[in-house]
């Protein structure tokens, strides 16, 4: 239905918008090699020395250790809870089944600051106030990571159907054997993809973390704290580039593993419903 002009305009528009999406990221990479502390354009001299500065920065190291610990535990917890919920929704009919997806997606569908404040007030006002630290960060991150695993696993379960499971039962396999030899191989890649995305999501989070971390430093918090200190800008530039690279690896693997589902789950907040259609 498109005329030639319209088609051309759309192509040009697409090119411009993609440039709009990627040029800023390119700029960050270029700035990480900036020799000068001042951040003006054009850059006059280039260096790689800030990469070694960043590597030896004690704050960066502490932050990295915390971020990795938090992401690891949040991912494992999200794996257990998200998979269990996916199985429950897929295998059973029960009252409130339709609301499960809705409730699980709330932490990423509602403004992050709400989750942040809610968790902050709860930790402060619980029967025995929980001190802010690694534990509280993990609690917060797990809450919004669950939906990522849940979405991936549920989408895969829906796609594989139940005939193989029924065949396995008919042939005399017990519940464990059916899970071990039929269900698990079918969902394995979806589970791993979900976990990788959850890991990336946790590693990246700042909005909720600011409310649940107290003085504990994570990598995004390090960037956040140092953005307004011009002296540390060069190190922040380098950390930013490293984070860009580190984030793309798990996401790329997840895309390859789960193909369709990971594509939509990679849309992160762009999944209001659990049963997302294959998007990529």
């Amino acid at each position: 239905m498109e005329s030639r002009t319209v088609s051309l305009a759309i192509r040009v528009g697409t090119g411009l918008v993609l440039a709009f999406l990627y040029i800023p990221l390119l700029i960050v990479v270029i700035y990480s090699f900036n020799n000068s502390v001042s951040q003006t354009w054009p850059i006059t001299s280039f260096t790689t020395r800030y990469y070694s500065f960043a590597w030896h920065d004690p704050d960066v190291r502490t932050a990295l250790a915390t971020s990795l610990t938090v992401a690891l535990f949040a991912t494992l917890l999200a794996f257990f809870l998200g998979s269990l919920a996916a199985f429950a929704v897929h295998r059973f009919q029960f009252f409130g089944r339709n609301t499960v997806s809705f409730v699980l997606v709330l932490p990423i569908a509602l403004p992050g600051i709400l989750t942040g404040i809610a968790l902050n007030t709860t930790f402060n006002n619980s029967v025995r106030p929980i001190p802010f630290g690694v534990l509280t960060i993990i609690l917060g991150h797990t809450t919004f990571c669950i939906v990522v695993v849940y979405n991936n696993v549920l989408a895969r379960l829906r796609r594989t159907g139940s005939s193989q499971v029924e065949a396995s039962m008919d042939l005399g396999a017990d519940g464990w054997q059916t899970f071990r030899y039929i269900t698990w191989p079918a969902i394995r890649t979806a589970v791993i993809a979900g976990m990788l995305l959850a890991f990336a999501l946790s590693f990246d989070e700042i909005v909720v973390t600011n409310f649940t971390s107290g003085t504990e430093l994570t990598i995004p918090k390090f960037i956040y704290n140092n953005l307004r200190q011009p002296r540390n800008r060069p190190v922040v530039n380098v950390v930013a580039v490293v984070v860009l690279l580190v984030m793309t690896i798990p996401v790329y693997i997840a895309q390859r593993l789960a193909g369709a589902e990971a594509g939509t789950a990679a849309g992160r907040r762009a999944t209001l419903r659990g049963d997302t259609e294959p998007g990529l």
Binding site: L244, T248, G263
Partner: peptide, 13 residues
């Protein structure tokens, strides 16, 4: 993929 990838680039960055 080109549309989705920037979402995974750190928000602060």
């Amino acid at each position: 993929i080109a549309i989705v990838l920037p979402l995974w680039a750190n928000y602060l960055v």
